[in-house]
Design a protein around this nucleic acid. Structure first.
Length: 492
RNA sequence: CGGGAUGUAGUACAGUUGGUAGUAUACUUGGUUUGGGACCAAGGGGUCGCACGUUCGAGUCGUGUCAUCCCGACCA
């Protein structure tokens, strides 16, 4: 019998609660005792590592190299670019001292007032400033360009309200920073990296995304253009899953990064930056999971196949032998597999546990079935169980993994497409947007209209989407002419 | 920083008019089990967030304080 206490909140009942419980119970992460921070547990980190590896490979295919820059940024660096400091000032953690000392009663430590820093250091909320300060030394000629670097690191943004993976004070990410000799090249790079993100989201995470460009008010602090991929979660809300910024010459000018171009003239370098964070974990969870727990795409699942034996004690040696042969064959095919013959947990517990953890394929090696040369195979995406011959099971599994990867993407895409609406009536919009979904609406391009929508409905313009056939129309709020539809939704 | 709530075992909670600190789960040990989250028995685990006050006596009442969570504002 199911023990109610241990089961998840139903997804449909309380989406936020369900999400939070799922992250904790699937052993991905937990709230740290440190305010606003998160502990990523080994299983969660294993998924993140697979994401990192796949992304890193893609970056390298586009000639990007990894590097590492300091965690601490002098306060003066941050203020060099006006909009940039404006955007981040409110959420920076500041280092003011470099030493502690024991207190007067010798039972604790206090900050040593004598160790006050001349200039405060900021824990990086992002690294544009310190990187461009460094680029100044690296760039002298057009021959030094393009300069394409990425770093995997942690950053800190002192958020008021946090949620596991979606918004934490400290988070892990990658931030790519590039410098170019021409505007065109920089713009192309920003768009190229957006494509890399979109490709990764769809083909590895199986998360369909809308690509587009942010409106002026939603832009990254200091950017001329911010490109974005927006995913739809199962409650219909949007999640900004990755961004790529065209920074123009803003940082080149702020940090005086000039080079001699082919015409022997000094010119400021053109910049891009782009990043994805552990928030992708949130996207992965909220896109595919169901009431039984996580559903992981095979491409990112740390364990792709779990094998569970069932039999009496005297049958175990035979089952172990059978299983080990399958494990060996699967590993040789590059499939990660776990054989769980722990005898301190009953099969039912294991079934539930691996479902909770989203393992794509489960094989039940039962003594009873094996007599007929069969094993039970269950796919996590639709929970279907079938008995298949144990001979040739490896090939069957390989195909099934591919099928699951394709199927969960299709499922997510069908769901999203069914919740994208064209809407031309503001009253109708106000009513329907509460229930979630993406709305394609005409917009007059003004910040006033944007602010009004946000204030009255909590929905924001997520992006001006690419890849849609656009026709002119009339703004649903102001009635003014509009050249194109924009994507409007409530978001995380 | 505005509005609301909550602090009791690792976790989730109960605790009546103030009178020996409880339940479930998790944990430890032993045994029986193992085809969908097992059962039985025994055991360990608490300055009831903190401080002060009222009282013979405070988890319970009062004041203060700290922390956390939820709804806003801000955000990858």
């Amino acid at each position: 019998m199911a023990k109610e206490l241990d089961f998840l909140t139903k997804r449909s009942e309380d989406y936020s609660k369900w999400y939070n419980e799922l992250v904790i119970k699937a052993d991905l992460a937990e709230q740290s005792d440190v305010r606003g921070c998160m502990v990523i547990k080994p299983y969660g980190y294993a998924i993140w590592e697979k994401m990192q590896r796949a992304l890193d490979d893609k970056f390298k295919e586009t000639d990007v190299q990894n590097a590492y820059f300091p965690l601490l940024i002098p306060k003066s660096f941050l203020s060099r670019e006006a909009e940039h400091v404006e955007g981040f000032a409110k959420e920076c953690a500041v280092v003011t001292h470099y030493r502690l000392k024991t207190n007067d009663s010798h039972d604790g430590v206090v900050v040593d007032p004598a160790a006050k820093l001349e200039e405060e250091l900021i824990i990086r909320p992002t690294s544009e400033t310190i990187i461009w300060n460094t680029f100044k030394n690296w760039i002298h000629s057009y021959r030094d360009l393009p300069l394409l670097v990425n770093q995997w690191c942690n950053v800190m943004r002192w958020e008021m309200r946090t949620r596991l993976f979606l918004r934490t004070a400290e988070f892990l990410w990658q931030e790519g920073h590039t410098a170019h000799a021409t505007k065109e090249e920089a713009e192309a790079r920003a768009q190229q990296m957006l494509k890399v993100y979109a490709d990764f989201a769809e083909n590895y995470m199986a998360v369909p995304v809308v690509q587009g460009v942010k409106s002026e008010t939603e832009r990254f602090a200091g950017a001329l253009d911010t490109y974005t991929i927006e995913a739809m979660m199962q409650d219909g809300k949007a999640l900004q899953s990755g961004t790529s910024h065209f920074l123009g010459q803003n940082f080149g000018k702020a940090f005086d990064v000039q080079f001699l171009n082919k015409e022997n003239k000094m010119e400021y370098a053109w910049a891009t930056s782009w990043g994805v964070s552990t928030r992708l974990m949130g996207a992965l969870i909220m896109t595919h999971s169901d009431d039984n727990g996580l559903v992981l795409p095979p491409a990112l699942a740390p364990i792709q196949v779990v094998i569970i034996p069932i039999g009496k004690a005297d049958q175990m040696p035979m089952l172990n032998e059978k299983a080990e042969a399958i494990v060996k064959n699967l590993r040789a095919m590059g499939i990660s597999v776990k054989y769980d013959n722990a005898d301190n947990k009953r099969p039912g517990f294991k079934f539930a546990d691996y479902e909770l953890k989203g393992v794509p394929v489960r094989l039940v090696l039962g003594a009873r079935d094996l007599e007929q040369g069969l094993v039970e195979i269950m796919r996590r995406d639709n929970l279907e169980k079938t008995n298949v011959p144990v001979d040739g099971i490896e090939e069957h599994i390989k195909n099934l993994l591919d099928e699951i990867q394709a199927n969960i993407f299709k499922k997510a895409k069908d769901f999203r497409d069914a919740h994208i609406y064209e809407c031309d009536n503001y009253e109708e919009f106000k009513e329907r947007v509460k229930d979630g979904g993406f709305f394609l609406c005409h917009w007059d391009g003004t910040a006033e209209t944007e602010a009004k929508i946000k204030e009255e409905t909590q929905a924001t313009i997520r992006c001006i989407p690419f890849g849609f056939e656009q026709t002119a129309g009339v703004d649903m709020v102001s009635g003014k002419p509009s050249v194109a539809r924009v994507l409007v939704a409530r978001s995380y």
